[in-house]
Design a protein around this nucleic acid. Structure first.
Lengths: 239, 239
DNA sequence: CGAATAGTTGATGTATCTCAAGCAGGGTGG
DNA sequence: CCACCCTGCTTGAGATACATCAACTATTCG
């Protein structure tokens, strides 16, 4: 696997307008090389493509997390999806992408040419499957953005990173022992805020409130220990 | 075409919890009849299926508008999609629907059995196409819910019903004559509020504010005349 | 160690919600 | 035909959750 660490200054200030327009893929491979090795690796905070770039390729995340976001002309930003291993991004019904894609962590992605997808029914099935999963996620996100309080949003965000819990098919707490779980946040407070439709301060206050209530312990800024998953789950508003 | 007008008392108060559980399709056809004529017609405010109903069928809207929504246990409601002619709904990655579906207007729909879809690559293409369109719409909606003011949300909502305008490929105002357009709202203020993540009062005030500014004329409660589409478009926050 | 960046906390402002009253239109029955 | 009612909508007054502005603290990195 090629070890290309694309670098690009992060732009997490929501203010920065979408000025410079790098090509869809940042790494300095030539087109020919890329065609031979569609698997690429990128440093955190690498912009993979921008909104309105021509939607030539669909990408699969093999490892890492990618954030998809949209910007309003005055700089307001909304993170519309968080894409992790096994999921696709860059799917568009139009000729251009409808949002920008930026890595959060060091990420390995696989690129598929559009034509390649059109030709393969296996790939098409993969796309359909991924889209169906996204649909549910986006519906949930709409509820979070439209109807939940700041505390509920942040709690919902935290629960998102705990597999098999909180959903319709929640497996519940284990029989014995504490219902504890530590999660690693690959996002800054600003990114979390832009995902949840809040400000950085409100996110920070929500974390503090959860800490005050004993629901979480913040070991490091990006390391949150949930002391009682089941209890936190009830703060999401969905249970 | 069978003229089955399913009737069911509307429940637009967001308070009403999801108590009664009618089957996926309300009309009083037998299963056999339905299999023969998957095309059905429904009165406004007919609930087609509820959240967590088994996702046995996918539906296509042939005529009318269908509203998809999710409820929180305490009664808060978020309308997650507005589906109109040519679009599909009832697609789910799981075994159950992730949201409820209710007609807004008199609606004709076509039902496809899940197995039927799995077997037909044409239907699968239709699904994929529909999902890709939804993806863009849901991304846009996330921006609206997460980052726009009440006035911007309502304006965005109004612009939604004007074809070929406001999008990336907006055709612009016509050369001569006023840039006027009348739209019919098939939704109550409460439904609009639940779509935009606002309260009914805030929606009402936003309409009044737009009227005060001369941006719209409300001929009837469900009939809005936009006096200058291009001008209204600039109030959406997206331009 | 010091500068730069990210996060927290406090004080204040404001957009939106909540509560409450009044209004408008459409349908019904006397 | 009109009075009445019902429902949906509007408007106002006050409350509040979140945003904004600003200062301070913690963390990271050279």
């Amino acid at each position: 696997m090629d070890q290309l660490l694309g670098e690009r200054p992060r732009s997490d200030s929501a203010r920065e307008p979408a000025t410079s327009k790098p090509g869809p893929l940042r790494p300095t491979t030539t087109d020919v090389e890329r065609a031979r090795s569609p698997r690429t690796r990128h440093a955190p905070h690498t912009i993979l493509f921008m909104e309105t770039d021509p939607a030539q390729r669909i990408y699969e995340v093999l490892e890492g997390i990618v954030m998809l976001y949209k910007l309003l002309p005055d700089g307001r930003r909304q993170v519309v999806e968080l894409v992790s291993a096994g999921d696709l991004f860059g799917i568009s019904a139009q000729q251009i992408y409808d949002c920008a894609a930026e890595t959060l962590t060091t990420t390995t992605i696989m690129a598929y040419e559009r034509a390649q997808v059109e030709a393969s029914s296996d790939l098409q099935k993969l796309v359909a499957k991924s889209l169906a999963r996204k649909l549910t996620a986006l519906h949930d996100h709409a509820v979070t953005l439209g109807r939940k309080s700041a505390l509920e949003r942040v709690t919902t965000f935290l629960m998102r990173f705990i597999p098999d819990r909180g959903g319709y098919d929640c497996i519940g707490r284990s029989e014995q022992g504490p219902d504890e779980k530590t999660i690693h946040l690959a996002m800054t407070r600003q990114e979390i805020a832009d995902y949840l439709g809040l400000t950085i301060e409100t996110v920070s206050r929500a974390f503090s409130e959860l800490r005050r209530r004993g629901a979480i312990v913040i070991d490091r800024q990006d390391e949150v220990r949930i002391t009682d998953v089941c209890r936190l789950c009830h703060l999401t508003g969905a249970h």
